[in-house]
Design a protein around this nucleic acid. Structure first.
Lengths: 213, 213
DNA sequence: TGTACATCAGTGAACGCGCGTTCACTGATGTAC
DNA sequence: TGTACATCAGTGAACGCGCGTTCACTGATGTAC
């Protein structure tokens, strides 16, 4: 293995160790030595990869941002599937939360708990998420002749619900994930219905109030 | 001042210092010495009041719980006022968040970030909050002949919205609080409307879709 | 009211520990010829 | 291909510091007579 490959491996181990450890007490409670040890190198070796813990923190935020964007893209690509768009999007979210639990724990946990820099970086990502959801809902609404007035509010409310209630997926055993997803879907539909974005003559897919879509 | 009064004063200072300091980096990142110093006593004096930091933490959770219950009671007592019930309840929430910012920062920040014990204690309080909101909505719905099927879901969604979006009050300058409250009220009404709990023939107070109530 | 003793909130020194950071180093990988 | 030198990821000792916790203590408040 080349020296560059080896270095990249170690860097990856540092990032993963920080993510994993931050799940229990939050990133701000971690120590450099602790992360280095968990990665199998000495504390001094850490400095070959990052200037300090803050720099590692920024990399973690970038990873969260990247994952969120992948999530949005995937949710969008499922819009035209035969399944309902809401159900498909929530399923995409749950998949990601389940596949990358450490990243989601960081996102959800440090949203208010971490340092100011951390917090504002995560907030910016969530705002971006809300904006993209707004765009999608608006495009869909125009197409279907639905009212668009409440869409920004609806998007904000939906993201609040999905992130807050969805956070429970991290603490629940696997066999209860489906039930949780179902609850989130129903709650999101309450918002969509309240904003007049559901149950219009033309619909993107066959759907009853709660069951199939 | 009696010895008991003096001791109580110091205890109070320790609690308030912990609350205040936990706002920046979260409670789990605080040190005993730091809290003692901010309270004007030596580190060893801390032990006259609490066995360790965890015991202080439990007291903080109790304070959060107490404040939440006061908040619920106040929101309930405003239900019959001439103002709309939603607007009144959100106003109560914003008042409390503004009056006890440190407690709300703790509640919102440690919901996912803190230790397991901390987290589950806060979760229990929020669940209680959801349950009481459900009861209130159900009583109201029965009285007005509204459907009650979606009430548990609506209550969970509403609390998610109020706590998530409401958390912004802690970062916003005072003159923007009213605008934020307005946004939350509108978002909550989307949920209520979606659940059929708004705009029925008989209403508890005069109200149009968004403006006055 | 005055005196003698008890209580106990808060003190300050001391401990061993993990922390972040520095430094000179080692030895495997990479490169030039 | 073989040799001689350069690079640099990771090491290990050392530093000063703040940590949680212990201990014997002090001196103001409280109590008994």
């Amino acid at each position: 293995m080349s020296r560059l490959e080896q270095k990249e491996r170690t860097r990856r181990r540092l990032i993963d160790a920080a993510l994993s450890l931050s799940g229990e007490r939050g990133f701000s409670a971690l120590s450099l030595r602790e992360i280095a040890k968990a990665s199998g190198i000495t504390a001094t070796g850490f400095y070959r990869h990052f200037r300090d813990l803050d720099e590692l923190g920024l990399v973690l935020v970038d990873e969260v941002a990247l994952t969120l964007r992948q999530l949005i893209r995937e949710a969008r690509s499922r819009f035209n599937a035969h399944d309902g768009r809401t159900k498909a999007s929530i399923a995409a979210f749950m998949d990601y939360a389940h596949r990358k639990p450490h990243l989601f724990r960081l996102l959800l946990g440090e949203r208010l708990g971490g340092s100011t820099a951390f917090r504002s970086a995560l907030h910016a990502e969530i705002d971006r998420f809300v904006a993209e959801l707004s765009e999608d809902l608006e495009a869909q609404a125009r197409e279907l002749g639905q009212p668009t007035d409440d869409i920004p509010l609806a998007a904000e409310a939906i993201v609040a619900i999905v992130f807050t209630v969805g956070a429970e997926v991290l603490e629940l055993p696997r066999h209860r994930h489906a039930g949780l997803a179902d609850r989130i879907v129903k709650e999101v539909r309450l918002v969509l219905k309240g904003a007049g974005l559901l149950d219009t003559p033309r619909s993107d897919s066959p759907r009853q109030p709660t069951a199939p879509g």
